[in-house]
Amino acid sequence: DLSALRVEEVQNVINAMQKILECPICLELIKEPVSTKCDHIFCKFCMLKLLNQKKGPSQCPLCKNDITKRSLQESTRFSQLVEELLKIICAFQLDTGLEYANSYNFAKKENNSPEHLKDEVSIIQSMGYRNRAKRLLQSEPENPSLQETSLSVQLSNLGTVRTLRTKQRIQPQRTSVYIELGSDSSEDTVNKATYCSVGDQELLQITPQGTRDEISLDSAKKAACEFSETDVTNTEHHQPSNNDLNTTEKRAAERHPEKYQGSSVSNLHVEPCGTNTHASSLQHENSSLLLTKDRMNVEKAEF
Results as ranks from 00 to 15, higher is better:
V34F: 02
P144S: 13
Q283S: 08
Q73F: 10
Y129T: 15
S139T: 11
E249T: 04
E142W: 11
L50F: 15
A107E: 10
R70L: 14
L136M: 03
H238N: 14
D213P: 04
K259M: 07
I41L: 14
A224V: 05
S185Y: 07
M296R: 09
R162V: 01
L21C: 14
L21A: 08
K221D: 01
L62S: 03
D231S: 09
A252I: 07
N243L: 05
P141T: 12
V153P: 14
D188G: 11
I67C: 01
Q11S: 05
N105T: 07
G56W: 03
K54F: 06
S156T: 10
K69Q: 14
T166A: 09
N191S: 03
P257N: 12
S266D: 13
S280P: 09
V161F: 04
K49W: 01
F45S: 15
I41A: 03
N52H: 13
Y104I: 04
I20T: 09
E9N: 05
I14V: 03
R135V: 04
L146V: 13
E32H: 06
E32C: 03
Q53V: 06
S150N: 12
I88A: 02
N131Y: 10
G274C: 12
K222N: 11
Q261P: 07
Q201G: 12
S145Y: 06
P144D: 14
S126R: 11
S176P: 14
K167L: 14
E8R: 13
V270F: 12
L137K: 12
R130W: 14
S103I: 02
N102T: 12
T207D: 15
T247E: 07
R6K: 11
Q18D: 04
V82L: 00
K64S: 03
T68V: 07
Y195V: 08
E142M: 11
R70Y: 15
E271D: 02
V7F: 04
T149N: 03
F227S: 13
V190Y: 03
P208F: 00
T233R: 01
T235S: 12
E22I: 01
C26M: 00
E140S: 06
D200G: 05
T211I: 06
V7K: 05
K192E: 10
A133W: 05
G199S: 04
K31E: 09
S139D: 10
S266A: 08
G274M: 08
D244E: 02
D218M: 10
Q138F: 10
K118H: 12
L158Q: 14
L151V: 11
P208I: 02
C225E: 05
E302G: 14
I123F: 15
D213M: 07
A101H: 03
T36G: 08
K55S: 10
L245S: 13
G128D: 12
L245I: 11
E99I: 14
T247C: 03
Y260T: 02
Q73S: 02
E258S: 06
Q53K: 03
A4T: 09
S150K: 07
C63P: 00
S58F: 01
Y129R: 01
E99Y: 00
S152D: 03
R6Q: 13
F45Q: 15
I89L: 03
R135K: 13
P141N: 07
K250L: 09
T194W: 11
N65T: 11
T207L: 07
G210P: 06
V121C: 11
H256V: 13
K49T: 13
K54Y: 11
K37G: 14
E8K: 14
V121I: 10
C225N: 03
Y100R: 07
T163A: 10
E187K: 03
V34N: 01
S219G: 04
L21N: 02
E140A: 03
A16S: 12
K54H: 04
M127L: 13
S145K: 01
Q53P: 01
H40T: 00
D119N: 10
I20R: 03
A16N: 12
S216A: 05
H40E: 00
K19C: 00
N52P: 01
V153R: 09
L158S: 13
Q53R: 04
V121Y: 07
I30R: 06
S35N: 05
A224L: 10
I20E: 15
K37P: 08
T160G: 11
L5W: 05
S75Q: 15
A223M: 06
G159C: 11
T68M: 13
N157C: 04
P57G: 12
C225R: 06
K87C: 09
G210D: 09
Q147H: 04
D231V: 03
A16T: 04
I215S: 06
R295G: 09
A220I: 05
S58W: 04
V198M: 03
C26I: 00
V34P: 00
E302K: 15
A16Y: 00
H256G: 05
L245A: 14
A279C: 15
E83K: 03
P24V: 00
S264D: 02
L204I: 07
A279Y: 14
N131A: 08
G262P: 07
V153L: 14
Q147R: 12
R132G: 06
G274V: 11
L136W: 05
E229S: 14
I30C: 14
A4R: 05
L136S: 09
N131Q: 01
L164T: 12
L137R: 13
T207A: 09
N131K: 12
L29F: 08
L289A: 14
K64W: 00
L85H: 05
R165Y: 13
A223R: 06
Q283H: 12
N12E: 05
E258T: 09
L204Q: 15
Q59E: 00
I30P: 06
Q125R: 11
N276G: 11
S3P: 06
E84L: 05
N286I: 04
V298A: 06
S145P: 08
L289Y: 13
R169L: 10
V161C: 06
Y104L: 04
E22M: 01
N267F: 08
H278R: 10
T149K: 12
E148I: 05
K69W: 08
N246F: 11
K49N: 01
N234A: 13
E254H: 10
S197N: 09
Q18C: 15
A223D: 01
